[in-house]
Nucleic acid binder design. Structure first.
Lengths: 218, 218
DNA sequence: CGTCGAGTTGATTGTTTTCAACTTTGGTGG
DNA sequence: CCACCAAAGTTGAAAACAATCAACTCGACG
């Protein structure tokens, strides 16, 4: 199964097609493509025919209200697949948070294999689960619960143990958690004051008492 | 394709198996089953092998935090299919809001037909879309924006024009919108005061200026 | 007609936002 | 290498919004 040369595929700034065996069994032949900080990967309303897997860097999925209020729907980290949707049009915009490399594949090339198709749906299903957890957080948790929950989830996904670098800015975190940047900042300080986390610069974090943090999330 | 008699199918309190041609093309042979107000249809952690379609009544999907805070993930209305998930375990509990009749079908009976399977996923996809809209609402909208958005969406789904009965209590609305019952009540009164809606009793609503309501949602 | 659950309204509190000033960080060029 | 600058982050004070606590009203049903 070869990727057809396409306008978009040819426009990709990567040169070599690479075979990629995804963790979850998704076998994809795609192209690597690099994005610089804040560069758009796809935008709301665009076609959903391409799916992506992050090689390095990080991505945010963003939606805007008419007056500019911003909601970050999700973050994607190295190894994550994103952009899998059955709808024809994208509902959100995807942007690179930092210098980011992704593998791009044409969904229609995968979907012909029912087995691959099933794996694609597994991703959509994971997405739905994350989205539902997000609803619970935004609907019913306080600022400190939101942040604690966020940090624990991030630590787990980054697989770096209890010390890691935040890939995103305070503004991104705020827009993900439905808070303001000031509230995120204050809550970070507060968690640090309680000895639950340790900040070294504003990006590097260590979870000092992960269990106590987890208690905050209920 | 016949439904196998199963422990659960036999336990259903309905007698006749009925063939149902769903609006969206889902062809299902299932059983009808009735639920009384507040009765559980399925609970968190249970198997996802059955899917449901509402014949009459209404259903809420609910998640709870450890301390009892409640989040309504979604409402389902007559004609809606719910309970379609790829995960093995259910993440939320489904409860009848009022006297409710549903058709129950075994997902594994449908999924063998790739065409039916595709239609099932269409539902999951719709669910994801609704969930993402919910995130945007809970993350970034004020109480009056949340309520206006909710009422407009409900009016559209109920297909009764601008006047309809709310199938759910204030508490359910509050738990769906991430507010308290008092805030929902006050916001209703406020929207009425602005001439945007008209309340006749606490259940019957008429949207007097749908366009102005829609403006509130941005 | 009385009771109970649901809903509304009022007063007050508390959390988060807003506005503003200040500090830190990271990158760039002298 | 250091100084400077802009962007990002923090902190403080005040305001706004929604939550909480409490009393009251409405409506359905016996």
């Amino acid at each position: 199964m070869q990727t057809q040369p396409s306008a978009l595929a040819q426009a990709l700034d990567s040169s070599v097609a690479r075979s990629l065996d995804m963790d979850d069994g998704l076998r994809v032949i795609g192209f690597t493509k690099s994005f610089s900080k804040d560069q758009q990967i796809f935008c709301e309303g665009s076609s959903t025919d391409f799916i992506y897997r992050i090689v390095s860097g990080a991505v945010r999925s963003v939606r805007l209200l008419a007056d500019g209020r911003r909601q970050v729907a999700d973050f994607y980290l190295p190894g994550d697949v994103f952009g899998v949707e059955l709808d024809v049009e994208r509902l959100a915009t995807a942007e690179a948070i930092s210098e980011t490399v992704v593998v791009v594949a044409r969904r229609s090339n995968l979907a012909v294999d029912p087995d691959q198709s099933h794996r694609l749906w597994r991703h959509a299903s994971r997405e739905l689960r994350r989205c539902r957890d997000h609803v619970l957080t935004l609907g019913r948790r306080s600022a400190s619960e939101r942040l604690a929950n966020f940090l624990i989830g991030l630590a787990k996904r980054l697989e770096r143990g209890d010390a890691f670098d935040l890939p995103m800015t305070r503004q991104d975190i705020a827009d993900y958690l439905g808070l303001t940047i000031e509230t995120v900042s204050r809550t970070m300080t507060q968690l640090q004051g309680q000895g639950l986390i340790e900040l070294d610069g504003c990006r590097h974090i260590r979870l000092r008492r992960p269990a106590a943090l987890a208690d905050l999330c209920e």
